[in-house]
Nucleic acid binder design. Structure first.
Lengths: 344, 344
DNA sequence: ACAGCAAGTGTAAACGTTTACGCATCCGTT
DNA sequence: AACGGATGCGTAAACGTTTACACTTGCTGT
């Protein structure tokens, strides 16, 4: 491994000068600088990250914590964040806890060891990691939680929520307008995102508000196999068996909807003629499926950009008085998978 | 920030003892250890990663470099790698260069600063980063390249390739057996994976071997929008216009195939009745689409596990004589998107 | 009773950087 | 001619760890 000292020896200067020449923050004579740069390149010098971090306290790295690789919506958010981070000369490093609460804790704890300057995270649930979250705040480390569930108004943490109230309201309105009266929601038992629990609650509230009874029975909990599509596939069978009179379904996300549509197709049920399906997240697949999916859209760009904004605001030590909470709007995108309720 | 010294002061010992107590590698009296652990917990001590790395030279982290978040196949591989890494007490940190050759270089260069113990990487092309790759080898840092293109037999690097020769052979055989004589391949102009170029070459060779003429015209290069599905969507229009007599298409990957199928559906063309489509990668979407996709399957588990195996083999300084190259088999999964060629 | 050994702990050095401080040197001004 | 300031660079300290080494105990075996 080539160090500053090696470069210094070869150049005939002190290693302080080499450091200065390479960083360009302090004054060095042009002649020396040129020589240093040349020697450094020739020797293949790379600054040691650990040494640099230890000294400067800055990693120039943002940690992104995801519940799983493979959620297209999260990936799109990651992409935006990556883009913004890159523009501000920061690196993005992503870790996934694969829906394992254990690993979720570990990931957060790891980040507290100063592996990065702060964190942006989708978390499954907040309460089990609240203590860790508090640490971030106390140590003045930026921590932005995405898809913030409603049950954590007291934890001191920045977050970006989604206006699910409005979103679900719109869906129900849309479906009711199409004549649907018996609507169900299909959900993974191990929810990938913290907001799933909220979705269930809000769905119930929405149904009640729309004047439908028997709301509590309208949630189909599908045991999770770890493969959301598969869960959707299986839930279609259960739906037909256990909720035979339902005419419209809201799926936890678009992957689940995709699995359901596939199974319904195999079983000879037509979407939306026999049953209407609404997805969530507006993943790329929603536009592509046949039929294309009616879905609740959250703008990944907006989420990513807002997250980065809050992050760098904190990083620049602006203020640490109050947690920032931003709620982003949702849009219902109507496509082919919803239609008039089957009469009868 | 709480350091070893803080804990030592509070415990009334030296910081060396604290370190020993916490790591448990050296002998400490049970009494002291217990007290140290308790104080450490009370103060909320977290070992500083940079300090630890600087001293020990070990990061216990594997770097995973991907061309983009959002490729489902890569994500599945990432998942397996994550799993294996976790079992061996290593963390996985993922970075994506979003198909930007510039960032690709930067990512690799960053990893050379010892941010992690080594790297597993999908690279777009090897030649532009060959110099960096060589550095890994020289510094005895594990570097496993996935989806290894065929043109880099001389670079000293470990790699896992896929038996595309056999894969494409099988596809052509399958299609020819169904009576197809005019087959095209559709490809992104900016290929996401290094092996795309190979796929094109091997496809041509395969056609030639199968006795078809005019092979050179059978590749449709679709300018990339960065959204592979969109590219597939657009390429369907071009295909019908520019290659009207083609009866079967091999798509660069399943997302592209999905886009094509969607567009063909909108244009009233039936798959596979009017045109057969073959995908690549066997992403989750392949099983879910209507019609489900005939596709070339690479086992993500196998790729991930093999990569990890090679990685840790290197890490334990076994041998550094020769690059390891492993070629994994491919399987053709026949589903609904291919059928008999339309006669006439 | 004393050598020898093991267990437990403290001291100090190292890992590779950045940067405050201080010392030369050089130039321009009086 | 002498002085002041700017410029360039070397010295040293610091960041938080781990660990080799040495030192004190207390114990065993002769």
């Amino acid at each position: 491994m080539v160090t500053l000292r090696d470069v210094a020896r070869e150049t005939g200067t002190s290693y302080a000068t080499v450091s200065r020449a390479l960083n360009g923050k302090s004054r060095v004579s042009p002649v020396t600088q040129k020589r240093v740069l040349e020697v450094a390149r020739r020797l293949g010098y790379r600054p040691n990250h650990a040494g640099r971090v230890l000294q400067s306290g800055k990693t120039n790295t943002i940690g992104l914590i995801l519940p799983c690789y493979g959620d297209p919506h999260h990936n799109e958010v990651a992409q935006t964040i990556q883009e913004e981070a890159w523009q501000r000369q920061h690196e993005l490093m992503t870790v996934s806890f694969e829906m394992d609460p254990n690993r979720e804790r570990t990931c957060l704890a790891n980040m507290l060891q100063r592996k990065c300057d702060g964190v942006i995270a989708y978390l499954a649930r907040l309460t089990p990691v609240e203590e860790l979250i508090r640490r971030f705040w106390e140590q003045r480390l930026p921590c932005v939680v995405l898809g913030l569930p409603h049950d954590v108004h007291d934890t001191p943490v920045d977050g970006i929520g989604l206006d699910l109230v409005a979103g679900i309201e719109q869906v129900i309105e849309h479906l009711v307008g199409l004549g649907h009266r018996r609507i169900a929601m299909v959900v993974d038992r191990i929810a990938s995102s913290g907001s799933i629990r909220d979705r269930v609650l809000l769905f119930r509230a929405g149904l009640r508000r729309a004047g439908m009874q028997d709301c509590s029975r309208n949630i189909l909990f599908q045991p999770s196999t770890g493969d959301t599509v598969q869960d959707g596939y299986k839930s279609a069978d259960r739906l037909l068996r256990e909720y035979p009179d339902v005419t419209a379904v809201i799926a936890m996300d678009d992957r689940m909807a995709a699995g359901m549509i596939r199974r319904l197709y195999e079983l000879g049920r037509k979407v939306p003629d026999d049953i209407s399906i609404v997805g969530t997240d507006d993943m790329w697949i929603a536009r592509t499926l046949v039929p294309s999916l009616t879905t609740i859209q959250f703008s990944p760009e907006k989420i990513g950009k807002t997250a980065i904004e809050i992050f760098f605001d904190r990083l620049d030590r602006k203020t640490w008085e109050q947690p920032k909470r931003i709620v982003l709007p949702t849009t219902l995108v109507v496509r082919e998978s919803t239609g008039p309720a089957k009469s009868g």
